[in-house]
Design a protein around this nucleic acid. Structure first.
Lengths: 329, 329
DNA sequence: CTGAAAGCGCTAACAA
DNA sequence: TTGTTAGCGCTTTCAG
């Protein structure tokens, strides 16, 4: 059933029906008729026809590298909360860490499918940049800084610096490092830079044999811990770029009978829920993921409403959470 | 720019352009012209106009009670994987456990916004039923059984039975229970029934003073554990309806110096990632969340392709994962 | 306040 | 193979 059939059924004009669903510039009489007919027929206006006329989809495209990650789902929760209040729905694309899917989703969104785009990605290429700048609708990047685009990000450098400093102050002299993909400017590069800066500020040398790069998961943290502890000399502290990596490293220590924090202190980043459940509660740095999602959504909303040409970067700060894994006396 | 302007620019007819983007019934000459013009103009056909003509949105609505839950995000990952391969995108609604949002989303989806719906909900009312049966597009429920509708679910009864049995076989004689909302037929009612059936099969009495109902989170598990252990007599085993609840209960035990599994065995359901990281690794029952999502998506796909009138229920089985929390000698 | 009518951009039937 | 053209269902002037 379409609007004109329905109008006939209700005994009113097409415009009356349209007005009923929009501005509501309508006499009580007609309103009643329409409501009665609605009850009878269950008519619903077609969204695509409306969208075609108005050019408004009330949809925001959200591109994610994966779904089942605590940090990402917290960010998404923030996004959905703010956007939902404003009547927007999310068109979600899970790229499964596949860069080509990221690109094709951006392509997809150029077909006027959405009113705005929020992009969570870990690595940016030239192609990303060029597609983003060709975008017809506003876009916001969450979790990374990308020059020339609207971003909401964390202070990854500061967070890593703070965690490393914490361990150095507790007397660490041979700190180890398990980092993430350096092409990821946030979790990879900046956290490494934060670690290294802290060492240099404390006059502690960076030792390559204590440095590893892991994937974003526990198993990889476990594996890299094994490498780092394989040599004769062992680190007395271990900075891990994520809590997952730290958890993996901890598991390995437990299996080897390496005591935490007595033999080695361990610190992570992200303050994931499991941190306090680990057999030695994990010191970490809280990053405001949900807030980042909410702020990203707000930035997008204001951009969609009155899209300014000024690009902005919002950086959220962090909180150090000290737990037993670094509590050496 | 619309299709006719673009066609003029490319020096071909509109149908040629339309065919280029669809069946591709086209001479090489025109194809070239179109591609050249595409390069020049960056033209993209409008999705809403296409949808309006074809009545195909290539969108599946997914209604979730929350985003940041491990089980739900695993299910969603499965859904997105299968649907993505078939060129469908997800229109995600996060109802934040708000029943009225569930209802309004179902309403929303009646506006021909999606080609199908997947619903994850914990509690079903008459209203859900009536809206679901008024749905114009196929719908699949994941994680629950609802008579008269397509469902993919877990064997919650069996899983709870198996975990309880495990602890009874290890000699538990005063088993406690921290369950979930009984209006939730899967995680609430069936898991309780499984627990009780195991007790009756073993001739162990159900003791009300050892039974509590918790929310779906750790804090609540912690709290309820406190209640259960408050009395003079204490349980020697604790079945928890979810791993989160179990983790909370464990934290409480750790604080109180109650030894696991010596003083009390603890078992959960869901096999969440943190289970093996807990200070006492948690015995649990693996439920195939991701597979459930994938199967739900497949069921929906086949329903969208050749919607049969026969409703089906697919129940996935479970695997018991024994870890230290129940390893009493 | 109301209704008639002109499109929005596209697809597909039809005629060539 | 191709091009012309009639809608898809809605919103929004514009004239009453």
């Amino acid at each position: 059933m379409n609007i004109s059939e329905f109008a006939k059924e209700a005994g009113v004009s097409v415009s009356a029906v349209s007005r009923y669903f929009n501005d509501g510039y309508l006499s009580a009489d007609k309103r009643e008729k329409i409501e009665a007919a609605l009850e009878r027929t269950g008519y619903m206006p077609s969204y695509s026809a409306r969208t075609m006329r108005t050019k408004v989809t009330k949809l925001v495209g959200v591109i994610l590298p994966k779904l089942s990650s605590e940090s990402i789902s917290r960010i998404t929760e923030g996004i959905s909360e703010v956007l939902g209040e404003e009547g927007f729905e999310l068109l979600l694309i899970n790229t499964a860490n596949d860069c080509s899917r990221e690109i094709s989703s951006l392509e997809l969104f150029r077909q006027n499918r959405v009113d705005g785009v929020i992009l969570l990605a870990s690595v940016f290429t030239e192609l990303h940049r060029s597609l983003l700048s060709k975008m017809r609708v506003p876009a916001v990047i969450v979790g990374q800084k990308l020059k020339g685009f609207n971003c909401v990000c964390h202070n990854d450098f500061g967070a890593a610096y703070a965690m490393t400093k914490l361990m150095l102050e507790k007397g660490a002299v041979r700190p180890g490092f398990i980092g993430a993909n350096p092409d990821d400017n946030a979790a990879g590069r900046d956290r490494r830079l934060g670690f290294e800066k802290a060492l240099s500020d404390f006059g502690v040398p960076v030792q390559e044999k204590f440095m590893e790069i892991a994937k974003f998961n526990m198993d990889s943290g476990y594996e890299k811990a094994r490498h780092i502890f394989a040599g004769r000399e062992r680190p007395d502290a271990l900075f891990c770029a994520t809590d997952n990596i730290a958890a993996g490293a901890m598991l390995w220590c437990r299996e080897q009978g390496i005591r935490i924090p007595d033999d080695v202190m361990i610190g992570g980043i992200g303050d994931s829920r499991m941190g306090k459940l680990l057999y030695v509660p994990l010191s970490s740095v809280h990053l405001h993921y949900k807030t980042a999602g909410m702020e990203g959504a707000r930035m997008l909303l204001s951009e969609m409403r009155d899209g300014s040409e000024v690009r902005r970067i919002l950086q959220l700060e962090y909180d150090v959470i000290e737990r037993e894994s670094t509590m050496r006396i």
